[in-house]
Simulated assay, not measured.
Amino acid sequence: MSVSVAVAGASGYAGGELLRLLSAHPEFEIVTVTAHQNAGQPLSAVHPHLVSLRHLVLQETTAAVLSGADVVFLALPHGASGAITAHLPDDVLVIDCGADHRLTDPDAWAAFYGGEYHGAWTYGMPELLLAGGGTQRANLVGATRIAVPGCNVTAITLGLVPGIAAGVIAPDDLVSVLAVGPSGAGRSLRTDLLAAELLGSASAYQVGGIHRHTPEIVQNLAAAGGANPTISFTPVLVPMARGILATSTAKLVGDPKAVREVWESAYADEPFMHLLPAGVFPKSADTIGANTVQIGLAVDERAGRVVVVSALDNLVKGTAGAAIQSANLALGLPETLGLPLDGVAP
Rank of each mutant, 00 (worst) to 15 (best):
S2Y: 08
V5R: 00
V5K: 05
A6S: 03
G12Y: 02
G15W: 03
L19N: 00
H25K: 15
P26N: 10
E27V: 09
E27I: 10
F28N: 04
F28Y: 12
V31F: 02
V31C: 08
T32K: 07
T32M: 01
T34N: 01
A35W: 03
A39E: 13
Q41K: 13
V51S: 15
S52H: 11
H55Q: 15
V57W: 08
T61Y: 02
A64D: 15
V65C: 11
V65F: 01
V65Y: 01
A69Y: 07
A69S: 11
D70K: 12
F73R: 00
L74C: 13
A83F: 04
I84L: 14
D90W: 07
D91Q: 15
V92E: 06
G98S: 13
P106Y: 08
G114Q: 07
E116P: 14
G124P: 07
L128F: 12
L129H: 03
A131W: 04
T135W: 03
R137V: 05
A138I: 06
A143C: 06
A155I: 00
A155C: 02
I156V: 05
T157A: 04
I169S: 04
A170L: 10
A179L: 09
G181M: 09
G181D: 10
R187A: 15
R190I: 10
T191A: 09
D192A: 14
L194I: 13
E197D: 15
A202E: 13
A204L: 06
V207Q: 08
G208D: 08
R212T: 08
T214Q: 06
A222H: 06
A223K: 11
A224Y: 05
G225M: 14
F233S: 00
V236S: 02
L237N: 05
V238N: 00
A241H: 10
I244W: 07
G254R: 05
K257Q: 15
R260N: 09
E264S: 06
E264C: 14
S265I: 13
A266N: 00
A268I: 05
A268R: 11
K283T: 12
K283E: 05
A285I: 12
D286L: 05
T287Y: 04
N291T: 13
R302C: 14
V309C: 07
L312C: 12
L312N: 03
D313S: 07
N314K: 10
N314D: 14
L315E: 04
T319R: 02
T319E: 12
G321M: 01
Q325P: 09
Q325D: 14
L329M: 14
L331W: 05
E335K: 00
G338T: 00
D342N: 14
G343F: 11
V344R: 03
